[in-house]
Design a protein around this nucleic acid. Sequence first.
DNA 1: ACGCATAGTATGGTCAGACCACACTTCGAA
DNA 2: TTCGAAGTGTGGTCTGACCATACTATGCGT
Lengths: 235, 235
Amino acid sequence: MSINPAPRAYQVVLDSIESDLRSGKLALGDQLPGERALAEQHQISRASVRDAIRILDVLGLVKTSTGSGPNSGAVIISNPAAGISQALRMHLAAKGINVREIVESRILLETWAAQMPPRNPLHAQQVIDRTAVLIMRMDDAQLSREEFHRIDAEFHVLLASMAGNTVVESMMESLRHSISHYVAESIPNDESWQPVVRVLRRQHKAIHHAFATNQRERAAQLIEEHITWFYSQTR
Amino acid sequence: MSINPAPRAYQVVLDSIESDLRSGKLALGDQLPGERALAEQHQISRASVRDAIRILDVLGLVKTSTGSGPNSGAVIISNPAAGISQALRMHLAAKGINVREIVESRILLETWAAQMPPRNPLHAQQVIDRTAVLIMRMDDAQLSREEFHRIDAEFHVLLASMAGNTVVESMMESLRHSISHYVAESIPNDESWQPVVRVLRRQHKAIHHAFATNQRERAAQLIEEHITWFYSQTR
DNA sequence: ACGCATAGTATGGTCAGACCACACTTCGAA
DNA sequence: TTCGAAGTGTGGTCTGACCATACTATGCGT
C-alpha cells in the first residue's frame, strides 16, 4: 500500500498554468514561456515540461508550432471540441460510453438552448441569418457527405450558441464531432444516404422557420424529433 | 504554405490503439505492450510512445503503474469523466465563466438528472446512502466553510450521477471547482453565512428525502429552488 | 517437501544531452 | 533601398541512461 499516489512531475506545470488562467495572468492568445524556460522555472526536466504541454495541446488549450517569433511556441487557444471529442470518441471505441448517452446529452443541451430566451437579440438575429446560409449550402446536391456533416454540425452548434452559455456551447461543439465516425459507419452507402439527407434538409428548414418566427418551444420540439429520428436511422 | 500539417510521431500509436479498440483486439482490462515494445513495433522512439500513452492516460483510457506482472504497465480502463471534466474545466478557466452560466448549467443538468429514471437502481441506492452521509457531515457545526462548500459540491455531483449519463456526469464534475468557488466567494462574512447555511441544510435534507421516497419530479423542483434561492442570496 | 528471504527482471518515471526542421530576425552586400 | 545569407530560438524527435517499484524465480534452511 503506497500512501504516495505518485506525484507526476508535469502536474506542477499544469497546475501553475491553470492557476494563471484563472487569475487572468494568462489569457487567450498569450504565448507560453519556452519549454526550456519552464523546465528551469519549475526545476524539472524539459521532458516533463513537454508532457504538460502535450496534454494542454491534446486538450485543445494550446497550439504549438516550431520556429521563432510571436506566433511560435505554445499559444493559448480554446478549442474544447478537440480534446473532449477525442476523449468521447476513444471511450466510445473502448465501450466505456454508448451512443445513447451522447444522444441524450445532445437533446438535453439543444432543446434547452432553443427554449432559452436569447441573451443577445442581435446575436440571435445573426445566428438566424447565418444558419439560413448554411441551410442553403446543405441543399447543394454536389456536397460530399463529409462536408454535409461539417456544415450540419456548424448549424447545430450555432443554434445552441444563442443561449449564450459557455458550458453548453463548449459541450455542443465536442459532442457533435465525437460521433462522426459512428455515423459514417452506420449509413454505409450512398443509396441509403440519399433519402436520409432529404429528410434532414426538411427538418433543418422547419427548425429554422420555428426560430425565425420566434416559436421557441416548437423549435425545441422539432430539434428533439430531428435528433431522435436521425439516430433511429443508424441501425 | 506547408502541405504537411506536421504529422506527429505519437499519432501512429494512438491510431493503432484506437483501431484495436474498435476491432475488439483490445478490450477493457487488457494490458498494453510495454513502451519499449511499442517503440520497436512502430519504429519510433520510446519518448514518442510515451507521448501517446500519456495522452491515453489523461483521457482516462489507460491506467499506468510501475513494476512488473499482470497489473503493471498500461492497462485499458474507461474513465470518461476524468478526461472530459479536466478538459472542460481547463477551457472554462481559459474562457472565463460567470456565475450566471454556472447557475444556469447546474439547474439544467441537475434537474434533468433528477427527473430521469435511474439507469442503475443499485447505483441509485448507493448514491442515496452516500449523500445521506454527506448531509450528516454538513451538519457538523465545527466544519470550516471551505470544507462545507467542498462537500456541498460533492453532494450535487453525486446526485447528478444517478441518471447514469457519463457525459452529464462529466459536465457536473468539471463544474465542481467553479461551484464551490463561487459559493464561497458570494457570501463574505460569517455573520451573514450562519442563517444561510441553516437554510441550505434544510434544503439538502428535503432534496434527499424526495429522492429517497422516489419523488423525482419533486426532487427536481426542490433542486431548482435550492440553486435559485442561493443565487438570489448572493447580491 | 515446505517457507521464506533473496536476487533477478521487467515495468513506467525521470533526466540529460544531442540533433533536426522550421520561422522569424538581423545584418551585410549589391 | 533591396534582398539574400547567416544567426537565433522554437518545438519535435531520438538516444541512452538511471531510478523506484512490483512481480518472479531461485535457492537456502528447515
